[in-house]
Write a protein that binds this DNA or RNA. Structure first.
Length: 283
DNA sequence: AACCAGGCGCATA
DNA sequence: TATGCGCATGGT
């Protein structure tokens, strides 16, 4: 695998990305693995590192580390550029509240993220805010993850994190979540939790399996199902979504979101956090 | 069943 | 500058 990591030149290519909103996609709280970098972003997904930037209607990707052969296919899938969001959002917009939420960030896409990166990130996200999640995941990567490119570290491998020392864990300043990270690493390294096995289960079975990890409750489990396992009907219920659902959809998501409830959640969540809450009633 | 630990960004005083 | 609030989970 040495040839994959030590490359003289990055693999650089363009992906068609009409209507794609890079900043909204990377900054809405679904990933904490990307750093704004002037005109673009640098970040990681699994064992790959990349710098990405919008160029007109295309997404320019410079993969700095990782397998080159399937790089285009990997990133196309990661950014959901293989999904017809024009058609999908047009469908969701049949609901008035969803239309208003999509208008806040119409180019936002649901990422398809690597399993273990996502599991660790959302364990850290619990009872936490985005700046601090970014800080802790950054220290987690620098402490335990391999350096894929200069200054860019991967998320740790499960085996490495499972062998963490107490001092290393303290340095994360992750608070009570530190032992949750270790339990997740042990269960993945030991094969008790495996993404291939989760993929064969229905949503409820996979949720229950993930909740065997200490520190993974229903909300964190649903985040992993949606963001890493492609379970697009799953709606992680944090406080913002509880408010949104109670207020606008007491009877559940509208029919136009059937099968895409998790994607609808992305827009509703982002809009709820972005714009000030409206008073009840008209106006 | 209701409460707190745990750390820190944030809004409000 | 100080104070309190919010947050997802596990444990009491």
């Amino acid at each position: 695998m040495d040839k994959d990591r030590k490359q003289g030149r990055p693999a650089t290519f363009l992906l068609p990305a009409n209507g794609f909103g890079l900043a909204d996609t990377l900054q809405c709280g679904q990933t904490f693995s990307w750093q704004a970098d002037g005109t673009g972003f640098c970040g990681v997904a699994g064992r790959r590192a990349a710098r990405v930037q919008l160029c007109g209607g295309s997404l320019s990707i410079a993969q700095l580390a990782g397998p080159r052969q399937d790089a285009e296919a990997f990133w196309r899938r990661y950014f959901s550029l293989d999904v017809d969001y024009q058609a999908l959002t047009a469908c969701l917009c049949r609901d008035e509240q969803l239309a208003g939420s999509i208008a806040v960030a119409p180019g936002m896409r649901l990422l398809r993220q690597p399993f273990f990166d996502t599991l660790l990130s959302f364990i850290i996200s619990q009872n936490n805010n985005i700046p601090r999640i970014r800080a802790i995941t950054g220290r987690l990567r620098e402490t335990f993850g391999g350096e894929l490119a200069p200054g860019i570290h991967a998320f740790p491998l499960p085996e490495r994190l499972a062998a963490a020392s107490g001092a290393e864990l303290d340095s994360l300043r992750a608070g009570f979540r530190a032992r949750y990270l270790v339990d997740a690493a042990e269960k993945v390294a030991g094969g008790m939790i495996h993404s291939d096995a989760l993929a064969t289960m229905d949503d409820d079975e996979a949720r229950q399996a993930l909740m065997q990890i200490t520190g993974v409750g229903p909300k964190v489990a649903d985040c992993v199902l949606l963001h890493a396992l492609g379970r697009l009907r799953v709606v992680p219920m944090d406080v913002w979504m509880k408010r949104t659902m109670a207020r606008y959809y007491p009877g559940g998501m509208p029919a136009c979101a059937e099968g895409w409830e998790g994607v609808a959640q992305l827009y509703l969540f982002h809009a709820a956090r972005t714009r000030p809450p409206e008073p009840t009633g008209a106006g």
